[in-house]
Write a protein that binds this DNA or RNA. Structure first.
Length: 561
RNA sequence: UGGGGCAUAGUAUAACGGUAGUACUGUGGACUCUGGAUCCACCAGUCUAGGUUCGAAUCCUAGUGCCCCAGCCA
């Protein structure tokens, strides 16, 4: 335990937190928050923020609030609230009783707005949306002040109250902060604080006719909750001066906003707009489609919370824009599942094998290890008989170099069972292989030959009469291009047509008949699989492939082609 | 000179004036009753040009490239 000598390298945000802790800036407190807008499901990008906010709070003995940033009733919904709560919990984080909403603060937000009006720092503008845009100027030209900018305080107060009371139509007036129309930072050109919306809010119903905008609501929400470090993504960097302005003008508690770069992953899309489009137009089967980068999709796919959290800690936190290789995500699940997943045997594309010298009608049970990485997971019995299924890919009549598996005259080991040798290949009239005849060596029971002879390969199998038939869904990357739509084309043009392959006639070892959703298995030599929580039924299981095992044979094969 | 930000192997990320390290990817090998896991090795990097310094990824100057901002979205 010499971790004092080896000073761990902190990401820049944790470094700031430690500095503030050292200087006593916030009285030794650390308070963060995760502030999603309930207008969609959470995705792996949110997981980065969740792990950062909840993780840092936990590490420094602080708290992290879950706060719904629900200031736009037109887009928000309780369905999203529920999914978000479920997903954050599933990732393993807890907010005790600190579940908040920006809508909890509508009244104080209103009161603070009145205060700003009285301080002549805010005014009701009656320009149309189009006019406001024109008056705003451009990136390189300053804006123009609104003719309503110098309205008397009393008039502003009156108008603002009547906006609240619903006396005006949408768009008739807005409340604006009075800052600087010539600022180089467009966010400071008298940003809109409130707009009129007749939309009912999923929480406050029809109580409000005006709703605050993000810039105004967020900083004050943070202030009310006593947040110390308000972490957000890079695109809000330009908003920080505004965040600071509101709190300074109001003279209230002032958290510090710090920006970091959002997560990008290749071979997928992460924007809310695109994810929503994939769902709504049916390119995928819902938010939790196992091909989606959503938390719910990853969960259904078989990803574990630990694998996602480990992934997030591996990618780090910086201000550099980056695109993480999905292979790192895949590595994170394999790494986790290798240690945890119970090994079983399942044949995806069955090829019948008849063992011609095996006693007719005989059955025996073979001992199999549940997880070679964890002795504690014990052993199980797997039934064996004279008729088996093996993987079609594990046999080649005319094998290329370096193909170690079964072929005519070649001996291989059946995992945990016997050595077998292929003697005959049975074909139908079209020349398709329908069955293999093999002989087994009774001396090799358990998988070792008393005479010490070796075999090159060990293949998996399942006893034909004991097997349970199952559907298995093979998932692959949703897109064929590392950056969908980057070439200027429609991102949907590079949707991977093989991202889902459904296999209906898979044969699994009998113990899998009643597999429960939420449990991860390794089908030996194939990959990690988990029962689909919607479609899997006792007796007729449906499995989703989480990820394949690393396969050096496919690489070898690729080189030979 | 509109404002803001970022540049380290293929991809990420360390090094905070003192041997450019780690992970993933890729390649080769050892081992193996999973062509898995594990282990070993290899490939591969400081945006450019000047400057300061005994010494620069780090400090200074000037460039270059990329990203974000003109919602009554967040």
């Amino acid at each position: 335990m010499d971790d004092d000598k080896e000073k761990k390298s902190l990401d820049f945000i944790r470094a700031i937190i430690e500095e503030d802790l050292g200087s006593g800036k916030y009285g030794g407190r650390v308070a963060t928050r995760f502030p999603p807008e309930p207008n969609g499901y959470l995705h792996i990008g949110h997981a980065k923020s969740i792990c950062l906010n909840f993780g840092a709070a936990e590490e420094y003995g602080g708290t992290c609030n879950l706060r719904f940033d629900d200031t736009n009733p037109a887009k928000e919904d309780t369905e999203y609230v529920e999914s978000i709560i479920k997903d954050v919990r599933w990732l393993g984080f807890d907010w005790d009783d600190r579940l908040y909403h920006a809508s909890d603060y509508f009244q104080p937000l209103y009161d603070y707005a009145v205060e700003l009006i009285m301080k002549r720092k805010a005014y009701v503008d009656s320009l149309s949306a189009d006019e406001i845009r024109e008056y705003r100027g451009t990136l390189s030209e300053p804006g123009t002040e609104s003719p309503y900018r110098e309205r008397p305080v009393e008039e502003n107060l009156d108008l603002f109250e009547r906006m609240k009371n619903g006396e005006f139509e949408e768009g008739a007036h807005v409340l604006r902060a009075k800052i600087d129309m010539s600022s180089g930072n467009i966010n400071m050109r008298d940003p809109v604080m409130y707009r009129i919306l007749r939309e009912p809010h999923y929480r406050t119903g029809g109580a409000w006719r005006i709703y605050p905008l993000y810039d105004y609501a967020h900083c004050i929400s943070d202030s009310i909750e006593g947040i110390t470090h308000s972490l957000c993504t890079l695109e809000f960097e330009d908003h920080r001066p505004l965040y600071d302005w509101f709190l300074d003008e109001l003279g209230i508690y002032h958290p510090r906003q710090i920006e970091f770069s959002r997560l990008n992953l290749n071979y997928t899309v992460m924007s809310k707009r695109r994810i929503l489009e994939l769902v709504q137009k049916g390119y995928v089967n819902g938010w939790d489609d196992p091909r989606m980068p959503t938390i719910s999709g990853l969960r259904r796919r078989g990803y574990t919370p630990d694998s996602i959290r480990n992934f997030c800690s591996r990618i780090g936190v910086t201000k550099q824009e980056s695109v993480i290789d999905v292979s790192l995500l895949e590595h994170s699940v394999r790494d986790d599942l290798n240690k945890k997943a119970r090994r079983v045997m399942g044949v995806l594309n069955p090829l019948k094998v008849v063992i011609t010298n095996y006693p007719e009608g005989y059955t025996e049970e073979m001992d199999a290890v549940n997880n070679p990485e964890d002795e504690g997971m014990g052993k199980r019995k797997v039934p064996f008989s004279g008729e088996l299924y093996i993987e079609r890919d594990d046999f080649m009549e005319d094998p290329p170099r370096k193909f170690y598996r079964l072929s005519p005259g070649v001996e291989v080991r059946l995992r945990y069972a016997y050595f077998i040798k292929c003697t005959d290949v049975v074909k139908d009239e079209k020349g398709q292989i329908t069955e293999l005849h093999c002989t087994y060596d009774p001396e090799t029971r358990g998988g070792d030959a008393p005479d010490g002879r070796k075999v090159r390969a060990t293949i998996h199998w399942v006893s034909a009469k004991h097997a349970v038939t199952a559907e298995v869904r093979l998932y692959d990357r949703l897109f064929t291009d590392p950056e969908p739509g980057s070439g200027g084309g429609d991102y949907k043009d590079c949707l991977n047509p093989h991202s889902l392959v459904v296999l209906n006639d898979c044969r699994l070892e009998p113990g899998l008949a009643g597999a429960e959703p939420g449990v991860n298995y390794q089908f030996e030599r194939l990959g990690y699989f988990t029962p689909d929580y919607i479609d899997s039924k006792k007796g007729s299981p449906v499995f989703n492939r989480t990820v394949t095992l690393k396969d050096t044979w496919v690489r070898e094969k690729g080189k030979q082609d």
